[in-house]
Design a protein around this nucleic acid. Sequence first.
DNA 1: CTTGACTCTGTAGTCGACTACAGAGTCTAT
DNA 2: ATAGACTCTGTAGTCGACTACAGAGTCAAG
Lengths: 153, 153
Amino acid sequence: MDLTIGKVAKRSGVAVETLRFYERRGLIEPRDRTDAGYRLYREDVLRRLRFIRRAQALGFSLDEIAELLALSDNPAESAAEVKRLTHDKIEDIETRIRDLERMRDGLAELEARCPGHRGTTAECPILAALDRDDEATEAAIPARASALRGNRP
Amino acid sequence: MDLTIGKVAKRSGVAVETLRFYERRGLIEPRDRTDAGYRLYREDVLRRLRFIRRAQALGFSLDEIAELLALSDNPAESAAEVKRLTHDKIEDIETRIRDLERMRDGLAELEARCPGHRGTTAECPILAALDRDDEATEAAIPARASALRGNRP
DNA sequence: CTTGACTCTGTAGTCGACTACAGAGTCTAT
DNA sequence: ATAGACTCTGTAGTCGACTACAGAGTCAAG
C-alpha cells in the first residue's frame, strides 16, 4: 500500500534526490521507515508534490511553499495569511515584469538604430550606445534593474 | 595619471573585489603593475566599466558582455554579430516576460476567488486550487514556467 | 546464491555574480 | 618609526533549487 521513494519518484516525476532534498527542507515527510531504514510514503504525498509543483509554477519559492503547506496542514489558520502571501507574490512578479519590460524597450531601441548586416563593429550604434557619454543614449538604458531574481534554473 | 584599484572602485562605484573578479572573468585588465604588484589602470577603464554596467542593466550576462567587449575591442569584427546578440537577448527577455505574465494571471485568478479576510484556511480557495484534482482549477495554473532564470541577484 | 536494482547517509558540486576573509606585504602621514 | 589605510593572492562562502557522487547496506528474481 505504501510507496518507496523510487515509486514516488516515478509516479510524481520528481527525482529521488529531490524528494530527499524536499524532506530536508521540511516540505514532505515519509509516513514511516522499514526496518532497513527505507522511507515509506502514503499515496497522499503525491497530492502534496502536485501542490508543490503547482505553487512553483506560480512563482512561489520553496520557503514560501513551506509556509503555504504549513497553513494548509493547519486548517485553523487564517485564510487572510494565504491571501497576503498571494498578493505579495503578485506584486513581486509585477515588479519583475516591469524591470524586464524596461530592458526589452532599451534593447529594442538600440536594435532599431542598427542599420543591418553590413559593416564592422567600428560603426555599430549598439556598441556606441553602450560606450558613449551623451545623454540621449543614456536615456535608452534602464537605470538599474533590481528585483530580477528568478527562482527557477 | 594611472589609477590604483581603490580609486577605480571609488570613481566607478564598483567594489574592489568585484574589479578583481571582473579581471578573472576577462572583462577588464590593468594597464600595468607597480614594482610591488599593485594594479594600475588607465582612466579608460572607467568607460569600460560603464559599458559593463549598462549592458548588465539591459540584461546581458557577464559572458555575453565579454563577447560584446571582444567585438568592441576589435573594430574589424562584424556588426551583424552584435545585432544578433541583441536580438537573441530581446527574445530571451520576452520569453521571461510571458512566463511571468502567465504566473501573474494564475495568481490573480486565485486571488480573485478569495472572499477576503474572515475564515480559516480550511475554506481557502487558493489552497484548495493548489490541492484539488479538478480541471477547472488546473487551467488557472501555468503548466511549467521555463526560462525564468534571472541573471541578477 | 549471486546479480542487479534499489535505498541509505553524508558531503560536495552546479550556475551566476558577487562577497568575505586570512595572512602577508606596501604606502602615507605624523 | 609606527599606525592606519591600502593592496596582494588564494580560497571559500552566499543564494536557490537542485544534482551527483561515494561507499555501504537491502531486496527480488532467476
